[in-house]
Write a protein that binds this DNA or RNA. Structure first.
Lengths: 146, 146
DNA sequence: TTAATTAAGGACAAAAATACCTTTAATTAG
DNA sequence: CTAATTAAAGGTATTTTTGTCCTTAATTAA
């Protein structure tokens, strides 16, 4: 479904949202360990998320690390997909046809359409906070229960 | 959503289903041109589909080529995904967590579940024939209208 | 001010997916 | 039987994705 990069981005953001605050920043090492991802690659992905402070914030130096503001917790998951350039995922034709459209639909177009809508809806309506609350309740990511 | 390999497999099968019969086999060249795919790569994918006659049949030599039987047109699209080893696509956790399950769900698990079910349903209930009929009606693949 | 710590940024490496090419095998027509 | 045609099979090349490493910049604490 998603690329590794996107999976790590979503998992990292959920974890950061659960555990961080302006007072308590998380190091790359902790994040990568918690979400079971390669640290160096994860660093690259976090760079995309911190670019222009779009989702995550970062501070260098001792006691530095990554964190998210309360305000940004209300961003939809879609924002994360955009940050890692996987936003057009749900726009594409399921058969990969460039010219597939409402007027020139592929054979799966109208059956896939409502499913696509639900996927878009899922990522537009769920906020980062929504997900991190669920993760809390359901104890995923906690104690490395991956 | 799908890999290029899977897209080509689906498109090729639909095209073969529309245009071929035991009497009228289609050459690799014709298929690749019609579905707008790289011929050599398409050849590899067709090999997967013809392996053990699982979906498509092939005959070598003059007037040889690829075709599908009426019987095999009633196979579900799922069969094509299996042939190109992309069958587990809809089994995986959307966040890529190995341990995600009903009892230990990821934060998106229960929201993604019904969508996943619809995707599975789509590929299990639609047959190759269903799709090629739609393609006929909606004129995709016809006259290279890709 | 200096040393330590942490992310940023760039270059590089490995793996996987995609695409190409050449030879071989099967089949058919002459 | 021979030549032509077409897919099968294997190896190779390219591109993309994934992953690593090293140096630089920022920040903090002593």
């Amino acid at each position: 479904m998603f690329s590794k990069a996107t999976e790590y981005a979503l998992r990292a953001t959920i974890y950061i949202s659960q555990k961080s605050s302006v007072e308590k920043k998380l190091s790359l090492t902790e994040i990568a360990e918690a979400i079971d991802s390669p640290p160096s690659f994860t660093a690259k992905i976090l760079q995309l998320l911190t670019k222009d402070n779009c989702v995550i914030h970062s501070v260098r130096g001792p006691n530095g690390g990554f964190y998210i503001t309360e305000k940004d917790k209300h961003l939809p998951l879609k924002k994360i997909l955009e940050a890692v350039n996987e936003n057009d995922l749900f726009d594409k034709c399921i058969l990969g046809l460039k010219k597939c459209s409402e007027t020139k639909p592929c054979p799966l177009h109208f059956q896939y359409k409502p499913i696509k809508q639900e996927l878009i809806h899922l990522f537009q309506t769920n906020t980062i906070q929504d997900l991190s609350e669920k993760a809390d309740n359901e104890s995923l990511f906690i104690n490395n229960a991956i």
